[in-house]
Amino acid sequence: MKTYPKNYPIVQVRNLQKHFPVGRGQKLHAIDGVDFDLQPGRTVALVGESGSGKSTVARCIMRLIEPSAGDVILHGNSILPLTPLQMVEKYRQLQMVFQDPNASLNPRMKVRKVLEEPLKLHSHLNAAQRTTRLNELIEMVGLTVAHLDRYPHEMSGGQRQRVGIARALAINPEVVLLDEPTASLDVSVRGQILALLKELQVKLNLAFLFISHDLPVVRHVADEVAVMYLGRIVEQGPTEDIFHNPRHPYTRALISAAPVAEWGVTRKRVRLDGEISTPIDPPAACRLSGRCPIEQPSCSTRDMPLQEIGADHRVACPFAVEQFPERATG
């Protein structure tokens, strides 16, 4: 495990953009300028609903799809100019856990083969060393050696996700992107997987990007939260700040809509009108305009950049500060 100075950014994402052409010269703006840093031992959560572009961010960082503009910097060097072959080298440091362990494990491969593949392709370990590493890995994610000889369909969802995590960690990466790692799991299993991730993060000093739509989970795991809406980050800051003092109307709507499994909690709901607007060629305007409860005339005429409103707390709404002066109930 390498040690880095405090706040050392392993990964820096700068003005990342991804536009998909959808015909007739139109473009779908899946991501429209996203910035954040990932640091060892810390978790940044990317929160948003479907269509916010949060999963596309992870795919762009891994270069499973090519970003349209912007930069992804790993240890000070941009990885976007790298050839696919050079990129494979970077996958030793950069790994990803997928949402649905059902779909991300090859149904015809036993766990042993799944976990051995990265070792064969990325390391020079001999057969005996690989076996040692496999046993170590499978126990590290809370499974037993017996699980190595099972097929994915012979295991439960939680066990499969443990295998997905083991595969990502097989070659000791420094950064792991977690794309909704608990979304397809039962609640009781969810807690176990989150605990495992936390334990591994501390043990291996991993930098996590945690992509999720599940606010209670994000509050539980993240050090920093970035809220995405229609391809943009609308609010970004330390987790407690975001949850105790959300500023952007969208953040407030999102937090106030999240169900709380406790008796007697009444939520003060912030409601948005209508439905999410189209990401195809959006105008230069606040992305929430048309739905926003505190909309001003100027909102639909210009872009709303992120503005610093507190220590590391940025909001893409100049009216949020005045309109919501009181602290949210929490």
């Binding site: 039962d186 609640v187 209670p216 999240a258 169900p259 709380v260 499994a261 406790e262 008796w263 909690v265 009444t266 939520r267």
Partner: peptide
């Protein structure tokens, strides 16, 4: 449902 959060309120 599987979601106790929805139930509470």
């Amino acid at each position: 449902t599987h979601d106790l959060g929805v139930v509470a309120e």
